[in-house]
Design a protein around this nucleic acid. Structure first.
Lengths: 223, 223
DNA sequence: GGTTGTGAAACAGTTCACAGCC
DNA sequence: GGCTGTGAACTGTTTCACAACC
């Protein structure tokens, strides 16, 4: 579990950044993009924080992990800060993504417009069902899982979205890793066991609902 | 907001429970359910923790917030602990859910089997598009957003899944609250502004990918 | 033997408050 | 005047380590 104490290799930042800070960075970025769309040019830490339910000091501290982006007496320039955060997150350039598993959810993810807006492009999909392989959905051709390596090399893909049924998830994840994938967004309701150098972010829709139910029950509500 | 009282057994919560603890509770529960399916009857904190990447002490401390569920020398009985955690989370009984917004994502959520497995039932859906209203998908009738109150009362619904486009999200969320919804699982990429007593859990698919990209870039990978 | 539950210690994250800057 | 960036203080969370128990 504990690694990367000596902040070397690749990343330009020395100190370890709390995971919670990175999560908030995405929220700041999203809110700032909305502000830019509305034509707003500057915002201060208190105003930005209030919109997201965090304190002004928190906003400043979070950003201070990565540099000095504000202007004393003014605040932050919205457009400029969006670019800086995108640079920090690594989303200034567009990322090519492969989708593994074109079921209900995979199908919806292929058509989801939100990804493109943030610089993500699902450029390929793979599945094992013969009736799906060869099809094209939202302009994306579905290949066979066994041809994964070819697909990945053809499109220079590094990260994958895993949307296969739970029983297949571990096996397919391993195939993704074998083919060279270094990051997986996992929608299957299982904990993947993979090499430490593979990044995994899990999204379990039922768990999100459970967390909501707990918050609701805490307030005294019952089904 | 909590007061301490209640003697010992019969677990009711007095102390504030960290959000992170509740999140892990869901993970424990999911893993335990898999274990039960495999026929396993007991597990100790170290084994359970290892599967999820947390320490044994963490597992025990998390559970200790809610009572004493383990057996010294043995560990935890899987089936029993699943029930206890479900009781804590409030998911022993089935929850009825309304889906607001039957686009790509909403469509997939209506068909998603994972919800039913965890005791969630999307029993109604609402939208505003005339060609969608009146349709039936996965056995769920789509009603008009304006008839929300009737739909909710008919099915005794407390919580909602919000899957409308970003520009409509705040307005529709307000309508949900006005109709009596007390918890919202929000898939729209916006921060909702709602009364404090409304529970909101946000899932932004692009943000999840951003977090994955950051983790990958940290390791030295580039698109 | 093995394992839990839990105070105490250690660590991490957040808030405070103010110097410095515009 | 307004606001950021940041060390120091504080709060919350995780880990340690051991008595109690099976």
């Amino acid at each position: 579990m504990g690694e990367m104490s000596t902040g070397s290799s690749g990343g330009s930042e020395g100190v370890a950044v709390p995971k919670a800070v990175v999560a908030r960075l995405s929220l700041y970025c999203r809110e700032l993009q909305h502000l830019v769309q509305q034509g707003r040019t500057t915002i201060n830490s208190a105003q930005l924080g209030k919109r997201l339910g965090v304190t002004d000091a928190q906003v400043r501290k979070d950003l201070a992990y990565f540099g000095q982006f504000g202007y004393p007496g003014i605040g932050y320039r919205c457009g400029e800060l969006v670019e800086q955060i995108r640079r920090i997150l690594g989303t200034t350039e567009s990322w090519s993504v492969v989708l593994a598993g074109v079921g209900n959810l995979g199908h919806a993810l292929l058509r989801y417009r939100g990804f493109a807006d943030q610089g993500f492009r699902i450029v390929a999909a793979v599945d094992v069902a013969p009736q799906k392989v060869g099809q094209e959905i939202a302009g994306v051709r579905i290949g066979h899982l066994d041809r994964l390596s070819e697909v990945m090399q053809a499109h220079d893909i590094r990260i994958a979205v895993l949307a296969v049924p739970a029983p297949q998830a571990q096996r397919v994840a391993q195939q993704l890793v074998d083919a060279g994938i270094v990051g997986i967004l996992n929608f299957a309701p299982v904990t993947l066991t993979l090499p430490e150098d593979i990044a995994v972010v899990g999204v379990d829709l039922s768990i999100e609902l459970e967390q909501l139910v707990f918050a609701v029950v805490k307030k005294g509500v019952r089904p």
